[in-house]
Amino acid sequence: MEVAPVTTNPFFSLFVQAHWVVNWAVMLGLGLASVWVWAIVIDKFMLYARTRRAMDAFEQAFWSGQSLEELYRSLSERPVHSMAALFVAAMREWKRSFENPSRSVAGLQARIEKVMDVTIAREIERLERRLLVLATVGSAGPFVGLFGTVWGIMTSFQSIAVSKNTSLAVVAPGIAEALFATAIGLVAAIPATIFYNKFISDVNRQAQRLEGFADEFSAILSRQIDERA
């Protein structure tokens, strides 16, 4: 019986010899992706908890009957976020308009709303940052793992052909190692998808809260403008 060499193409044999490089690159990349995903998850968890607490505290201070001027003075000393930032931005625009000698009250209402819109967009951008990484890992992770698996099974079949032995003892270890790539891909992708959905809904809830506060505050300022004008 004539025995033909299995891999005659030098280019292909180069790839076969490099299969470990490919597999390890896939697995290492997926592992790093998993580490990064969990870092983002932990970071976002802390950020959203902090934001929620800050909002609660600010709303309590805002509706406590305290003078808005005093509140503004205490808050504008240091950089603030979320609802407080909204308040500070609106108050700054208000003060600029009234402390100016030529009081430009005419477009003040529109200007305040525009400033608050910009602040809300900036805050949401801050909350949403890096969430796209979760989405990307969640959707692409299984495919990358699958790629590693397919590559591993291909090379494992090549080695089967070389050894001319189809028993399970020869086939199984290579395929098991190849399937490990898919396992890592799923391990990275499943939490990423779950937490991405959770965080997106969290961000939406906080954005709603900011919008509500912006409308309320805008109404208050509008009344003040009409009284003073």
């Binding site: 998993s34 990064w36 969990w38 870092a39």
Partner: peptide, 15 residues
């Protein structure tokens, strides 16, 4: 610093 905490916790967990 916050991202660093998250990264450290995550890396420790994976290790």
């Amino acid at each position: 610093p916050q991202m660093r905490t998250g990264l450290a916790i995550s890396a420790f967990m994976h290790a």
